[in-house]
Design a protein around this nucleic acid. Structure first.
Lengths: 229, 229
DNA sequence: GCAAAAGTGTTTTCATTACACCCATGT
DNA sequence: ACATGGGTGTAATGAAAACACTTTTGC
């Protein structure tokens, strides 16, 4: 299998679908493109992978440049390689999705973007390149993953109420859930730490705060426990 | 995001994990490499993606060249892009897995391989490049998918007995199942066609033959039915 | 005192598991 | 007649779903 030059006329990129949650709706971070092609249109943040960079590294770099956050949940989803997906040449792109707490982040325009903004998922109906398809694929993946892994917590602040957690799941899965059953189930999993702390300044009975207990989760998983919502 | 030349010094390939089942064990199709690097070692079949070829096309092509079969189940799994995964340059590879009926296939050596052979999964402990890791990732994926989609049938001949189907699931999932419960469940899904035909020449009561009924499955799926084993 | 969300158990329904014997065929 | 795998039902258990009222706070 000798290497021929024609095979080296291609490039690869990563594109990030960065999900966030604002206590109401599931959102995704988009950029307005500053260059052709698709100048002025909304697109997923992404970049070409550098020659000395692993794929995951590239995805983390894009995320960091845009949001300043590191150490977040990030997972590869799918690689899109249609011959004509990029008008300027053969570029295959590896799609990643990440989950971040929207409040920890002050987004900043990067070199490749005029504007950066959180957009409600449901309001998006087109994006540059094949990015709309990529977003839908990642959304589908998120919906599947969130039921089988405790990743929802990544979208919330460290301390949260059970109702916030429920709203998050309802928003991601686009289905309502029963309050009592939700609590029963999530608490029975024994992955939450019940804090001795309440909400402040709310015009109703204040809710107790919880945090995700990664130690409990790790040891439960050791014993064959499977998170499933 | 201008295109710079240094980004075009890389190549991408596809690698196929081709699963088969011989009524006993889960197997995977491997090649013995005819060229350096890793000449003489067992590896996954794969090839560089051609400039005018979609990723999926490339995966189908590799499969076809090796086995002569088309129209089989094939799914993208993950993209491996470590900087040094290929000793001769930057090559990222997109891994696919496919499921084929081992008896329909007469494997043939391809240009890039001396030998081609079905190897029992459990007997494999190393492969060229990062192919062992790739195989493990695909195996994990197969084990997950097979529980949620009716893909197991792809590994069997068109007509099969319920026991064969059960052995397949046991072999893929590496766990024994109860005969009565397995039958009850798979039959209650209503995706099998009960044929008026039996096994021949077996030294025991002949089993009834079944086939997968893709029409029943399609219409059940329309109505929100979810296959789950 | 009223609005707003928090918190809390029981019953019903359904799916999963565990389990043992007779049947049809080839040799 | 014996060895081999084929084929069948029921009872017990546990998980999921449905469902309504009291509590605490801010205004």
């Amino acid at each position: 299998m000798p290497f021929q030059n024609e095979f080296f006329k291609s490039a690869f990129s990563v594109d990030n679908i960065i999900f966030g949650f604002d206590s109401e709706n599931l959102k995704v971070l988009l950029i307005k493109r500053a260059y052709d092609p698709f100048m002025g249109e909304w697109a997923l943040p992404g970049d070409l992978v550098r020659p000395d960079e692993d794929l995951d590294e590239a995805a983390f770099r894009v995320l960091d440049e845009l949001t300043g956050v590191k150490d977040v949940y990030l997972d590869q989803v799918h690689t899109f390689g249609g011959v004509n997906r990029h008008p300027k040449g053969r570029v295959i792109t590896v799609a990643y999705y990440s989950l971040i707490n929207i409040k920890n982040v002050s987004i900043r325009a990067a070199s490749f973007a005029d504007q950066v903004a959180w957009k409600e998922i449901r309001s998006i109906d087109k994006l540059a390149f094949d990015h709309y398809e990529i977003m839908q694929t990642c959304l589908k993946r998120l919906r599947r993953d969130v039921k089988f892994r405790p990743i929802g917590f990544e979208l919330l602040p460290p301390k949260f109420t059970l109702t916030e957690l429920q709203r998050l799941y309802e928003s991601v899965l686009e289905q309502d859930m029963d309050k009592r059953n939700f609590r029963k189930k999530i608490l029975s999993m024994n992955v939450l730490k019940h804090l001795e702390e309440q909400q402040q300044n709310v015009a109703h009975r204040p809710a107790m705060l919880y945090s995700f207990d990664s130690e409990k989760y790790a040891s439960a998983k050791e014993n064959g426990f499977i998170f499933e919502l």
